[in-house]
């Protein structure tokens, strides 16, 4: 039986393909909110920390897939540093214009890097899990799940926690509850670097009913490369802003949100989008900025609390 390799990803890479190639997916971002690292040379802490941990072999992986087009230049440079440290690295590019043909060619190159398809049934299994994810997302918006429980599951869909069977068990262990939602919040941008952010928001009276990026993790799928290319080509973070904004407008309306929290990461290019989001999304909006991982800092809590008071005044 071939040995399953641990394939790390730096942003969303269709896990359907990685599992189909017989490998395990590992999203390097998932260890960062709990890490205590202070990277030496950093712009964005997300990429700087995974770069340092991978280069120093503090995380054991077999290969790395860097999302170089559709993510940021920080990832492109930090990915090259990891490659230079000796880890086999592949650079993956999403199309800006949404070309399914281009994405298919990228997926074919990735398939070759991973050594070819060995488990063609895996994408179908992943689709079933993603249907459960969509159900979790829906229940959360109805107040049947806490936003932190839902977030913990949804964020793990980028790599399906490395094991489809175990992840299925984790999903089924989530307990339903009954929450009265007063302030329905959409959290847009990259996920906060603070591991307790959803709990803190909820304790301050803000119930996150939409997590932008994790929603991308569950809404795309496909059972073969042709289909995967035609679905993932609409991954909003890789597309022009007007495409993403139209998508957000629809989702926010559907979820009847009262306000938007735009999380921005220090030295991340998404910071530059804040004024565009503010002028195009017609909701009260709070912008917060994080830098290093850890607990949600007091100054961020003040902003969240003041935002809740503002929503209750309006």
């Amino acid at each position: 039986m071939p040995v399953q390799k641990k394939i790390a990803i730096t942003a969303l890479v269709p896990p359907e393909l990685i599992y189909a190639c017989g490998d395990e997916t590992f999203d390097v971002n998932n260890v960062i909110p709990e890490s205590k690292k202070y990277p030496r040379n950093k712009l964005c802490a997300w990429t700087a920390i995974w770069q340092e941990m991978l280069s120093k072999r503090e995380i054991n992986i077999d290969s790395l897939i860097v999302v170089a087009g559709g993510d940021c230049h920080n990832a492109l440079v930090d990915g090259q540093k990891v490659a230079m440290s000796g880890i086999p690295t592949h650079f993956f590019f999403y199309p800006f214009d949404g070309s399914a043909e281009y994405l298919e060619s990228q997926l074919l190159k990735l398939r070759d890097f991973l050594g070819g398809i060995k488990s063609p049934e895996k994408p179908g299994e992943i689709r079933e899990l993603k249907d459960l994810g969509l159900e979790i997302d829906k229940k959360r918006a109805q107040g049947k799940l806490s936003s932190s429980d839902a977030f913990r599951i949804l964020i793990s869909f980028s790599d399906l926690a490395g094991d489809l069977d175990k992840f299925r068990e984790t999903i089924s262990s989530v307990r339903e509850t009954d929450i009265e939602i007063n302030n329905r919040i959409a959290l847009i941008g990259v996920p906060p670097i603070y591991h307790d952010f959803h709990d803190v928001s909820q304790s301050l009276g803000l119930h996150v009913v939409f997590d932008e990026l994790p929603y991308e993790f569950i809404r795309h799928s496909g059972t073969d490369i042709h289909q995967i290319a035609r679905d993932y080509c609409n991954y909003t973070f890789a597309r022009p802003l007007d495409f993403r904004i139209k998508f957000l407008q629809k989702e926010l309306q559907k979820r009847k949100v009262d306000g938007v929290v735009h999380y921005t990461q220090f030295a991340c290019h998404h910071m530059l989008e804040d004024d565009i989001m503010r002028s195009n999304l017609d909701y009260p909006m709070l912008t917060i900025q994080g830098d290093l991982p850890g607990n949600t800092p007091e100054q961020i809590k003040l902003r969240l609390e003041a935002f809740r008071e503002a929503l209750e005044r309006s």
Binding site: M285, T287, Q289, Q299, L302, R303, A306, A310
Partner: peptide, 9 residues
Amino acid sequence: KNNFIINDK
């Protein structure tokens, strides 16, 4: 606009 910004960096 019921809006605020805080500078504390």
